[in-house]
Design a protein around this nucleic acid. Structure first.
Length: 285
DNA sequence: AAAACATACAACCGCGGATAT
DNA sequence: CATATCCGCGGTTGTATGTTT
């Protein structure tokens, strides 16, 4: 009956990944894809749970990841999406190319949440929890954006809105945010003012597409590096701008030998030299 | 200079839906 | 149909790093 256990807890390593483990995982997935995560650790020679491998890959090793802080535009997008979707981080992440749910979740908890509270906005309901005290708060761009977004949203004035917020969701604030994510919501969407998103058209364009947005949900399953590169080159799938900047993992590849990963296709790319200490950091944390 | 505190983020845990047996 | 497991998700924790006292 049923299936075999995902991993036999015994002998499974936990805690931070080492560079060596990263190397094995990257090497394996780029070569073979991941048919099923359960099999990955064994096949890749890792003493890890498949779950752990999946997490490491999706949150850290995946080559299409952007790294570094979220931009103001991305942050605003997260706020707006959170207003509509609630804590559905994976859905939110799907709208932000190169960002992971974990990253967004962390950023929300450490940055955005505090900002909103500071602004007198309940980060859960996105409603004012107190008088907009200290309007002076010398408005960061975010503050302005958020005020526009929420104020417009709450005043029901849909004609002049600048935030990308589902007005319906606020009118129905008693509803769970998760109930507001049906595709029919689209009728009430308003376009983001370009000032809000800093003209990040890419983000906007991808915003209300279906979850299967190909610019985001690039399937790495069964991708061989050559196909991968072809996808990037032919399907308007851009390498994240930070690909090179943050490509410590790529440097890893360089150290290990790019050929080991079947990454010859990346040979034309400029790979910046990064201090080994930086690398350590990257793989350590 | 060092201790205490705050922050950021990678990784783990546990749950629920989907699916194989 | 029942059960066991996989997979993905969201919440939480642990720890490294940065800042303040």
């Amino acid at each position: 009956m049923g299936r075999q256990p995902c991993c036999d807890k015994l002998g499974v390593k936990k805690g931070p990944w080492t560079a060596e483990e990263d190397k094995k995982l990257i090497n394996f997935i780029l070569t073979n894809g991941h048919c099923c995560w359960r099999a990955v650790p064994k096949l890749a020679g890792l003493r890890r749970c498949g779950k752990s491998c999946r997490l490491r890959w999706t949150n850290y090793l995946r080559p299409d990841l952007k790294r570094g802080l979220l931009t103001d535009a991305e942050e605003q997008l997260v706020i707006d999406l959170h207003a509509r979707l609630g804590n559905r981080w994976s859905k939110i992440a799907a709208r932000l190319p190169g960002r992971t749910d974990n990253e967004i979740k962390n950023h929300w908890n450490t940055h955005i949440k505090k900002k909103l509270i500071k602004m007198g906005i309940d980060p859960v309901t996105h409603e004012q929890i107190s008088k907009p005290h200290e309007e002076d708060q010398s408005s960061s761009s975010l503050t302005d954006q958020k005020n526009n977004s929420l104020a417009d949203n709450q005043s029901c004035d849909k004609s002049q809105t600048s935030g990308l917020v589902n007005t319906e969701s606020d009118h129905n604030s008693s509803r769970s945010p998760t109930e507001n994510c049906s595709s029919t919501d689209e009728s009430t969407h308003v376009l983001l003012d370009s000032s809000v998103c800093g003209g990040d058209e890419f983000l906007l364009d991808s915003l209300w597409l279906e979850d299967t947005n190909p610019t985001v949900d690039i399937s790495w399953n069964s991708q061989v590096p050559g196909d991968l590169m072809n996808d990037f080159l032919s399907n308007d799938i851009a390498f994240p701008s930070s690909w090179e900047e943050n490509g410590s993992w790529l440097l890893d590849c360089e150290d290990f030998g790019v050929h080991d990963f079947g990454l010859d296709c990346f040979g034309d790319m400029e790979v910046k030299t990064v201090e080994p200490s930086t690398l350590e950091m990257g793989s350590k944390q």
